[in-house]
């Protein structure tokens, strides 16, 4: 696998064919586990009208906010935008159309897309604004129908990866990333440590490389902390 066709030189190389109008999933919870290198490289492409699926669409002026500032995003699919004033501003100015999705429904719609489930019934959102226009059906309790959420590209980050694309995530940086990797036609992974095949034990692979189309060694990670709280602080 030393000549694995999946291994790309760097971020610029890996994201170069993304076009305007693409649907892109981006991993990370707030700024935890975001694909920093791919976000920066895509920001340099002259593309627009992106449909972005990401829990927060960046936060505190960082992450995907870079795309917002360049007016590259036309649609945002997310669960929480508090703490992201740039997104709020673009929603208010009607530059970005937003679909707010309950976080569990959001992650399950992505997982469903990756695993061939077309739609599913869930009690989440029943009786709320989220249920408007959706099919309802009663099981043990009333539920609403939610559809799978697909993408052209997923950009994600893992702590370790090998040339086949087998991945290992650190602590809570895993969040939506393995689900997004399954749901996109082309999954682009950046890793902090590129390791040899076999170095991640089979039992410890969090995402099999089958779901990964491109992988590269990332660089200059900031790994920003949003709210540093130490022992003794509330």
């Amino acid at each position: 696998m030393t000549n694995s066709p999946k291994v790309y030189k760097n971020a610029t190389d890996a994201v170069g064919d993304i076009l305007s109008g693409s649907t892109i999933m981006s991993g990370g919870f707030g700024l935890c586990g975001i694909p920093e290198n791919s976000i920066e490289a895509i920001a340099k492409l002259k593309i627009r009208d992106l449909k972005v699926i990401s829990n927060n669409i960046g936060n505190s002026g960082r992450g995907l906010v870079l795309w917002l500032q360049k007016n590259m995003i036309s649609h945002a699919f997310c669960s929480y935008v508090g703490g992201n004033p740039d997104l709020e501003e673009q929603i208010n100015k009607k530059l970005v159309e937003v679909e707010l999705i309950p976080q569990g429904t959001f992650s399950e719609r992505i997982r469903a897309a990756g695993l061939g489930i077309r739609a599913f019934y869930t009690p989440t959102g029943y009786g709320t604004l989220i249920a408007e226009g959706k099919e309802e059906k009663s099981f043990d309790r009333p539920c609403i129908l939610e559809h799978a959420l697909h993408a052209d590209f997923a950009i994600i980050k893992a702590q370790k990866g090998d040339p086949y694309g087998n991945l290992w995530f650190k602590e809570t940086a895993r969040n939506f990333s393995p689900l997004m990797a399954m749901a996109a036609k082309t999954t682009i992974v950046e890793v902090e440590e590129m390791v040899e095949l076999g170095e991640i034990e089979p039992e410890n692979i969090h995402l099999p490389g089958l779901f990964v189309q491109r992988i590269y060694q990332g660089e200059n990670y900031k790994n920003d902390i949003e709210f540093l709280k130490l022992e003794g602080e509330l």
Binding site: S79, Y80, V98, P102, G125, I130
Partner: peptide, 8 residues
Amino acid sequence: LTGMGGAM
């Protein structure tokens, strides 16, 4: 607008 996060 903040979003519902995981509350629902």
